[in-house]
Design a protein around this nucleic acid. Structure first.
Lengths: 220, 220
DNA sequence: TTTACTGATTACAAATTGGTAACAATTACC
DNA sequence: GGTAATTGTTACCAATTTGTAATCAGTAAA
């Protein structure tokens, strides 16, 4: 959604974005913008700072209060050099700004980048494993169990990660050594057991099942 | 890449651009242009509107459908006065047009301008990162923390920038070295730690979390 | 030239982790 | 029930990893 009081800008920018395949809505002022935003729930709002009646900053603040738009990216259009408006803009909840004069190529690639960013934040990739009340975030090396955050040392984290990739599957000791320690490292016979014990202490005894003569498995 | 059915034009324009240091490919018609464009992925395509078989407009539309060429600038060559072709050209996805007769000086400066624009748009809006009260402006190498402006040395700035691109994500030491120092540079084992320490001093201790055996992460 | 700063290194301190040994407990199997 | 094999547990220690301060070379600014 484009918001600007100048019809020229709406047309030029709108044309460029449409021809990239984006669906474009326009609004001529802040009031209209809020109205239309509620209806259309745009993914991205490009907002001119300088507008009559309600300026961009104020419009932005109002837009940010609309719950449906919490995932909407808002970016300002601002004349080059007005840095004060940048700061004020960020305070108002903007995510980025674009400087005038507008270069179509720059604009389009900026819009692409912003929407890509939005998309990325929507699906939290496969780095996250979720089993019952246990959430393993590989990217952040963080574990949440029943809403409580737990920080595990590396080996314990990796051991848990491994077992959790396939709940119910029995991992042979050999396999665990391979994947967690690396098959060139030689460790004593009780090492795995000790680490399992630590995990049992921290995550819960019932989650780890021993299969005698074979290995361990993680159960929900 | 130049596309025109007249060999004279290819030669003259090609000569002028080559002598400015550009790498020039040529094609005699639309079909050849598409073929060669797929192979060479040119940064800029100059396309004559009037060509036998497939005209410039049609060629442009086909070129725009090639994913690899989404960042390619396409400009038309058109006889002065044919405005209709300008409109049609923009609809077909062109970025600019050049009128015949061609004045070499004008042409070269236009090409320069177009390629400069491309370059600017290639590294788009990662320019500003905002996390809580911290605003990082990569374009201006400026950081604002709680409204206060902070100036960081280059390495510290880049380290912070990197970590801030994905708050919460743990960046492995290896990855940090790669992205901030460049993977050909070899630095001592304590270098990253020392820089982290300086950032902790300037930005706040709590913002940087150590993950032993792995790396560091930035947290809000 | 002087000064100030950046960026890296070093050496040592501090903290944490990972592993082991010794022994206890449990299980499987005869 | 007895025995051997396997796993659980604990305390302890060594190795690894990180934090920190001091220092130094290189470079840009004054």
């Amino acid at each position: 959604m484009l918001v600007d009081d100048e019809a020229d800008i709406l047309e030029i920018v709108g044309y460029n974005l449409s021809s990239e395949g984006y669906q474009v809505t326009t609004a001529k002022n802040g009031v209209e913008a809020i109205e239309k935003a509620k209806k259309h729930k745009p993914h991205l709002i490009i907002l001119d700072v300088m507008m009559p009646e309600m300026d961009g900053i104020e419009a932005c603040e109002k837009l940010r209060e609309i719950p449906d738009l919490s995932n909407t990216v808002i970016t300002f259009l601002t004349a080059r050099g007005e840095d004060y408006s940048q700061v004020a803009g960020f305070d108002a909840g903007a995510d980025d700004y674009i400087t005038k004069p507008i270069k179509p190529k720059v604009l389009v690639s900026k819009v692409k980048a912003l929407l890509r960013r939005l998309k990325e934040s929507e699906n939290p990739s496969d780095t996250i494993i979720k089993i019952g009340e246990l959430i393993i975030n590989r990217e952040e090396y963080k574990i949440t169990n029943k809403g409580e955050e737990i920080i595990l040392p590396r080996k314990e984290f990796e051991l848990l990660s491994l077992l959790a990739t396939k709940p119910g599957k029995v991992f042979k000791r050999e396999e665990i050594l391979d994947k967690v320690w690396g098959n060139e490292v030689v460790v004593g016979g009780r090492t795995i057991d000790v680490h399992i014990r630590k995990l049992r202490e921290k995550i819960g005894d019932k989650s780890f099942k021993t299969v005698k003569g074979v290995g361990y498995k993680f159960v929900d």
